[in-house]
Design a protein around this nucleic acid. Structure first.
Lengths: 230, 230
DNA sequence: CGAATGATTGACCCCCTTCAAAAGCGGTGG
DNA sequence: CCACCGCTTTTGAAGGGGGTCAATCATTCG
């Protein structure tokens, strides 16, 4: 039944990761443990639009960009998948989105068919999937709000705060494990504007950029939130 | 359980509407029939951010704008809900989005609690909800791609084509049952740019705008698709 | 019919894009 | 270990598209 519905999820989050207390009979994370691991080089594709949808992948390490290719060849990144996130879930026989590693990483591979078969028979799993997609939807909406913003500062501020929520190790530090071009394709800007805007935010003493531009320290989060206009 | 998960769906589509052959034991549309009707004036709110989430509404007539309010007071429209669409679904105790009629219309009111209780016990219903949210997610992604586009022409073209898919009576005619300001807030543009761009598309012989700007005839759909860059 | 709301069009300005160049970092091989 | 090479980032200057402000026109509704 799931396979008859031509909708792709792209990536969803294992519920147990965000809400650790919820382990139960239909626990996704539990079922994913035994699958095989695939290593990824930077810029390597996990899958592409049109590929047969054989596996569901769970990010183990690194960051995966989920994107659509436009008719003029440009890339529109929909989301970045972080460790714990599931990508490649869906219902069609083919992928309608592409997934590409922004840096080196690993994904755990799982059979798409068997996961979907499980979802059919297990109501608890179905509800977990439902919630996961809700979460994904919520994230996409937030991104939509950010991208709809006029200024580049607003978009970058929103982006940094969103990363902070995801990445969540040091609350004041964000690792940009992707290129400027990835950020640009996510936010609907150019690399130059991304770079310039980060410099501007640094000049405003709101952030600090270190170590080849990959590590950002959030100096003034209240101000950053203000700038994001969320 | 559903109520403990702080995610709002905003609006989802009754599965039976898009896939008519799928009627079954847990049919949403079936359960919605007996609910009460509420009439809406143009610009009237169905619910607002922060309101207690008591009802789930199904649009009967008209168009409802689903939006977020930014800190500076601006509106970011997430989606337009059309007849058949469900709005107000979610899991938090309060709405995190607002819903406002763009024109006169009617909504059918249904108890949120009872629908969610049903979803808990009925696996078939849970899967239907899951698929509905997938559909919603898909639509939001398409909008994200459109809004991420650089030019106003691309955004308007995408918007018109999306409306055509939704509205779907005459395949060459689209009714804009909303103000220019609503379109602007959806696409991240200004009213002036929306107006100018529609005029430009008219000058290009791609569309025709009639009757006070509410009815748009799609003269050259291949061209429009090209312009949308989808 | 008249007031109010919304749509259209014009002029000007700012921000982002585009084009271009230089500098930094990482990786590879000698 | 260092030098070299490619990729990425940063920064600069110029141009264009959309925002802003403002006026006119159309439509709707009381």
């Amino acid at each position: 039944m799931l396979a008859s519905h031509p909708i792709e999820i792209g990536h969803i989050v294992v519920p147990a990761r965000r809400a650790p207390g919820q382990a139960g009979s239909g626990d996704l994370a539990e079922r994913m443990r035994s699958a095989s691991i695939r290593k990824l080089e930077s810029k390597e594709h996990v899958f592409c639009e049109g590929d047969p949808r054989i596996h569901v992948f769970q990010v183990e390490e690194g960051v995966i960009a989920i994107y659509k290719t436009l008719s003029d060849g440009r890339r529109r990144i929909i989301d970045f998948a972080y460790p714990g996130d599931l990508i490649g879930l869906g219902a069609g026989k083919e992928h309608i989105l592409s997934a590409q590693a922004t840096c080196r990483g690993k994904v755990r591979c799982h059979s798409a068919a068997s996961l979907e078969a499980l979802a059919e028979s297990d109501a608890g799993l179905a509800i977990k999937l439902y919630r996961s997609v809700c979460q994904e939807l919520e994230a996409t909406r937030d991104l939509l709000v950010a991208v709809g913003q006029r200024g580049a500062v607003e978009r970058l501020a929103s982006f940094l705060l969103a990363l902070r929520r995801k990445d969540a190790k040091d609350p004041d530090t964000v690792r940009l494990a992707m290129r400027r071009s990835d950020i640009a394709d996510l936010l609907g800007l150019t690399i130059e504007t991304v770079s310039r805007t980060l410099s501007k935010l640094r000049a405003m003493r709101v952030i600090d950029v270190e170590q080849g531009g990959t590590t950002v320290t959030l100096r003034d989060i209240p101000r950053l939130t203000e700038l994001s206009n969320a």
